[in-house]
Amino acid sequence: MAPIADSVALKPAPTKRGRGYWGSVLLRLRRDPVAMVALAVILLIVLAAVFAPWIAPADPFKGSMIRRLRPIGTPGYLLGSDELGRDMLSRLLYGGRLSLFLGVMPVILAFGIGSTIGIVAGYLGGWINTVTMRTIDVFFAFPSVLLAIALSGALGAGILNSIVSLTVVFVPQIARVAESVTTQIRTRDYVEAARISGASGFTIVRVHVLGNVLGPIFVYATSLISVSMILASGLSFLGLGVRPPEPEWGLMLNTLRTAIYNQPLVAALPGVMIFLTSISFNLFSDGLRSAMEVRQ
């Protein structure tokens, strides 16, 4: 037979790529009505928070002693006013900024740190894995709410400290998921094939492990956003997170609790927002998971 180089031209022919894994996940996700509605709600809330200064009808900090606790639908106060006479709608719009930030930021940080720990421990295995994972297990001895409160209490109130303590709460959870997925992937034949082709551990993780591991970790992380939001609101409610007069849904829930008998509907509004946002994140995360559960 002719030597290899003669039979085909010596430049790679342009190839049509098949629909990749993420392409097909996206396609399936687009056909999931629940996930799409959840995504739309999330986008709506995010856009409202981002553009709050332009769409808010009033200044969220400007109160009025004579127009306190107006009911929903009062002219000039579409969603009523709070205990200091500030416009609820404006405060809810502005509050979304901090609440979303406190929900998403710890999860992003924990995703980075936890995945790194879990993937390294899972890929290396052996005693490194044992030591790392048993250390991680110590964190599971504390309920996450308690851990978040204890850390925030020790660090002191403030947005930055809330983010730090929530990150610490989520790192072990994400690391554990990352470790278990990586341990599964590590023994696959294609990883062994990569090893016998002489690739270094770093290259194997980069090319063969990450692509198969980050998806499941990402899905798990999105399901933590709602938990993070609720915990952050809880911290603010307890006075350990955001401080007044900053608008934040958890804090608003706290300051309005005294008005629960006078204006129950107005007092419940921040809770409604927390509920709506976290359930949307959860439903979207569920949809993403089932869209990714294909083949294999």
């Binding site: 990749g20 894994y21 696959r188 294609y190 082709s197 002489g198 690739a199 090319v207």
Partner: peptide, 21 residues
């Protein structure tokens, strides 16, 4: 099936070894 990375195209799978070297 288990010996091919599901996230890589056929050409990327084959080209991996030469690239490593």
């Amino acid at each position: 099936y288990a010996s091919l990375n599901p996230r890589l195209t056929v050409e990327d799978t084959i080209a991996f070894g030469p690239k490593v070297h």
